[in-house]
Structure formats: C-alpha cells, structure tokens
Computed example of a mutant assay.
Amino acid sequence: MFPHLVMPDEDPFHFISDSCCRLNKFNVPHYMILAENNRVCLVPEDDISICPPKLINNLEIGRFFCKFEGTHYVPNERLRKAYPNDTALIPKILSNQ
C-alpha cells in the first residue's frame, strides 16, 4: 500500500499495537499514524493520546496534509472533504490545549 515506507528490520509487524487484534473484535476504530522516518502505525483509538506538536519526517504527509502550522497539520482539500466534522473541530481542540 505504501511501498516507500520503512518497515522495521527485526519484526515487520511490531509497529502494530498488541491490543489491535484483541480490540478489533469489538469494532474499536483504528487509526493510521504517520511517524518519523517514513514509518506508519495502526493504532486502536483507545491507545491514542495528545502529544506535543512537531514536524514529522514522513513522505506520506503530503498525501493528507498541505502544511504544518506549528500546532497541527492542516488537512488538504481531499481530507477536509472526506472528514468535514473532524476539520471543523480543529479550532475547538486547539483552544482546549
């Protein structure tokens, strides 16, 4: 799916959370997380938390976002159309931090 993404040498599936399989049967949403050095992670919603913003070195960033604002990545037009409710919540989320 992402041929240029780096897979870990030691275990190609260690980036997928151990709880992924356990929670999947309960239909918990999972999210693709773009990480440093072109890594991608599949993470259950319950394992996601807010962390300090930072610029990420990942070739896939441009597929979903148009720029980094210092506090968040700005979704590109395609992502805004696909997830209008998420985009609308960005100002509210930022004001609560």
Rank of each mutant, 00 (worst) to 15 (best):
L59N: 13
H30R: 10
F64G: 03
E60G: 09
A35R: 15
E60K: 09
N38E: 10
S49K: 14
C51G: 15
E36G: 14
N58C: 10
G62N: 11
R80I: 01
Y73W: 08
F65P: 11
R22K: 10
L89D: 05
D47C: 12
I33H: 06
H30D: 08
D86T: 07
C21S: 07
S19W: 04
I50Y: 08
F26C: 07
L55W: 11
A82D: 00
C21K: 10
C21I: 11
E77R: 02
I16W: 01
D86Y: 07
C20I: 09
A35V: 13
C41H: 14
D86L: 10
N37H: 15
P29I: 05
I33K: 12
Y83M: 02
I16A: 03
E45A: 13
R39V: 13
C21D: 10
V28M: 06
R63Q: 02
N38R: 13
F26T: 11
M32W: 09
N58G: 08
K25L: 06
R80G: 00
C41P: 11
L89A: 05
C41F: 15
H30N: 11
H30C: 12
N57S: 12
P29R: 05
L55R: 14
N37G: 14
D86M: 08
A35C: 15
K67H: 09
